[in-house]
Design a protein around this nucleic acid. Sequence first.
DNA 1: CTGAAAGCGCTTACAG
DNA 2: CTGAAAGCGCTTACAG
Lengths: 313, 313
Amino acid sequence: MTTLMDVAERAGVSKSTVSNVIRGTAMVAEETRLRVERAIAETGYHPNAIARSLKARSSSTIGIVVPDLTNPFYAQLSVGVERAANALGYGVLTAHTECLPTTESEAARAWIERRVDGVIIGGMSLGASLPKILLDREVPVVLASLGESDDPRLGVIDHDDAGAMEAIVEHLYSLGHRRLAFVSDHLREHAGERRYLGFKKALKARRLVPIAIDDGATAIVAHNDMQAIATIDRLERRGLKVPDDVSVVGFDDVPLAAHCRIQLTTVRSDAVEMSRRAVDLVVQAARGGRHVSHRELLDVSLIVRSTTGRPPQ
Amino acid sequence: MTTLMDVAERAGVSKSTVSNVIRGTAMVAEETRLRVERAIAETGYHPNAIARSLKARSSSTIGIVVPDLTNPFYAQLSVGVERAANALGYGVLTAHTECLPTTESEAARAWIERRVDGVIIGGMSLGASLPKILLDREVPVVLASLGESDDPRLGVIDHDDAGAMEAIVEHLYSLGHRRLAFVSDHLREHAGERRYLGFKKALKARRLVPIAIDDGATAIVAHNDMQAIATIDRLERRGLKVPDDVSVVGFDDVPLAAHCRIQLTTVRSDAVEMSRRAVDLVVQAARGGRHVSHRELLDVSLIVRSTTGRPPQ
DNA sequence: CTGAAAGCGCTTACAG
DNA sequence: CTGAAAGCGCTTACAG
């Protein structure tokens, strides 16, 4: 690998001067600059980001934790984060934790050693220690799509889950459903809990309570689209028909939800916008040397398709 | 951030000694070791991986390029790579290129600057310069799931595409199909090309040639499951029935393929095994300071479900 | 406008 | 068994 020094020797100048032309920050004589640029081109020199990071005490990388990349919502979140981060000159280190506490702490340790500048959490176990570990070391953290938190140092960017649940329940209620169940994702108890709370609240406003899924529910609200799609599979393999026997609602509006064989009624969330905002927040905080401490709710809208209908007589 | 020096001062020893106990590689007196360990615990010290990397001239990270994370096959590949890499102490830097040449070169530049120890390519544009750029800088590269290459320095780990296509065509042929078409993914021309070649060869052995998809094909072979599922959508929106009017075959056996509303006939590939092998190869090569130069084919098997049947009369 | 020097936080012979 | 010193490849005041 060629180094700054190699370029300097070739151009017959000092390391400082080469550094100055590369970063374009100090005054360099036109003629010197040209000589250095030629030397760079001839040697195919690329600055060593590691050395730069050491000096800068900043790795220019952020971490992201996603519970399950196989869920298109997280896939989109992940792609969005990577794009937004790259655009700002940051790399992203991913951890697929499946909300396993040990994997979470492993990731935290690796990230601390690698001195990530910030972390975006797309999902974690209930009561995870991950955020605190990071925050205590002055690493800014934002929770994407997983609700609020008691720690004021945390940034939060989320969907309006309560509003979404109200819209879903209203839709179902007006179709005549009175026996509603909720399927939650064992993986992500954190946010699952939140949507369930919104669901219960919306039911309560109508003097209803959630019932168990096998207890004659005529409508099932799932924590997300992939859960909803899996629920349809489970139901129909048992001989029930969706929506004739049971209505099913998802959350996220993943691309597949619009497929003609699925036609899932769901709530549209914007993973790309969410990731853009999350990266923005975390990078701003990192640059400012502070925590994020900012809370933001993204709008969300109900998309009615063909997995919801009137309850059977 | 506390440094080695802080720990050394606290323990009343030199930096060298602290380094020695941390790496456990040199002889250290029991009593000294205890003192140092206590100091580490008290300060919550974590070694700075950046400084270590600079010294070691190795970043302990690998890059992976995935065209489209929304495709569960790539999602699984990506998860697999990350897990396998983490287990070996490597971090992974992801690039979602969508097979865009400019994004590919951007990723190459970023990776070179960050001095990745190796790169795994899950998809790239046809004739991409990415591999050569990396190889020329002594970065080992393995192509996962995208066929061979003319560059002998490249590692290759792939499915037996030709064998798979032969099995698919045989299945369709024996059902009575004679008018077969292939849908290719514009994103991944590289591997798309390869499977298409295998498809053509299998047809040729039966004295058939591929026909255009809208030219009365009774069976459509897709480059992958997501393509197949999208094809079913397109067909059925036009009023055609799968498999009654047209049979459809995928490739990968993503989880969704088994869904009761999809029941896709497909070929099972093992993304996890593939990623494990790819990481292994690239890490071995990196440690040995050489290129991968190894080619390997993974077995694959046909899974017949309900999107294939006899052609209409 | 240019260069010598110090320093980022480690590791690694080497001397003692 | 322990520590002083050099060095990984940069950046950044600072002197000239």
